[in-house]
Design a protein around this nucleic acid. Sequence first.
RNA 1: GUGGUCGUAGCUCAGCUCGGUUAGAGCGCCAGGUUGUGGCCCUGGAGGUCGGGGGUUCAAGUCCCCUCGGUCACCCCA
Length: 423
Amino acid sequence: MADTFQAPRGTRDILAPESERWHVLVARFAQAARQAGYRPVIPPMFEELAVFQRVGESTEVVRKEMFLLAEREGETRQALRPEQTASVCRMFAQHRPPTPWKVFYSGSNFRYERPQKGRYRQFDQVGAEVLGTDDPDADVEIIALAWRFYQQIGLRKVTLLLNSLGDGEGRANYVAALRAYFGAHLDALSAQSRETLAINPLRVLDSKRPEDGEIVAAAPRMVDHLSAQDGAHFERVRAGLDALRVPYELAPRLVRGLDYYTRTTFEFASSALDAAQNAVGGGGRYDGLVADLGGPAVAGVGFALGVDRILLACDAEETFGPPDSAVDVFVVATVDGTDALELTDELRSAGIGADRAFDARSMKSQMKAADRSGARLALIVGSQEQESASVALRPLRLGGEQQLVPRAEVVARVRALLDAAGA
RNA sequence: GUGGUCGUAGCUCAGCUCGGUUAGAGCGCCAGGUUGUGGCCCUGGAGGUCGGGGGUUCAAGUCCCCUCGGUCACCCCA
């Protein structure tokens, strides 16, 4: 036996019916975003490594999980994208579109990490971003867009966790306060947290290690260090969410894995999933990122939602099943197959879903295939029908008797039957 | 990157503890029963080098080692 191959580690093949729900999900998201005035962008799958390094030198994503492409002479180092916000900001810096620039996207990202359920090396996200304004209403619009989308696909056990990380002086003061606080309790911290502390004190708040629990819980809170301006911004975001009746929980310890976030920060957690993969989406404001990428100093806010995890949550909540994939009509032809070829083509051209069997199987076999296809109607052409230039029309999942119709009238008769049944 | 656990037909699994005839079941698939008609039923068939490699042994799906992959926790994140 020849060597067999399998999908690379951390990737998976998505077959129907899973692939069907996947497509519907992405289409629904696109529809929701377009309805809110967002337009699609299609960033490249890879960028110069430096673009992604801007999301934070201290993050795992950049330090250990980049999918680097082989370096070629005379070219800068490139990497597969680990997320798309950085690319969107690079696009903005490069093309300088009019603001506010409201965009959405969907597609795969790549992170070289150890795979687990709901965590893959190639994973898909849908996301939306607003660049060019720091109006808190934009934050609210973004959050509401994501929230309504979860609602629309039937997820009920999603919680919005909200925080503000502040910016500028307030943020600097807070980081200093955190550093001092954790520094004073060094021996109570886990070894890993002590390392993290040296790199980015904010991320120590993220620790789930039990020995850190107590000390993290008592750590100073960002909300107490916000500047007057950032505090007002956050108040306005909260008021907006209240006005839209989008429920949220304040999460003063919520920091996110990417360092570019400022001010509003949020995460969507599904209580239907295990803690390891319960983050079904997240986002926030990144007011300095475009400038970091060589663009103008414009503000930005956005989110990304994990397609794989959303579908996992849908399974857990038993919602958003695969769409009906049945074709309308199945053509059974036992004489020479040309009838099947022509009839299916005619039906499809008329906008009727049609399928057939191959390999000149027996009528019984073709009828079984017709049944399995889920078609509501079978069209049968045997030698008798062929001689009389007619087609037998047999209801499979419809009421009524099998009838013989003239070949020339088939499409019209099929349509009439389907319409009658559909109504 | 660390630790645990699992890996037998397309799918779900039995067999492994105490090595020993041609490795089984259900579902699915194909064909026949019905020489022109699906869903139910009956009969038969195809399909597995037991994830891969090495070792122990007269003998390995069963024991040992390595490796690949899944999965769970940590880490991190979507």
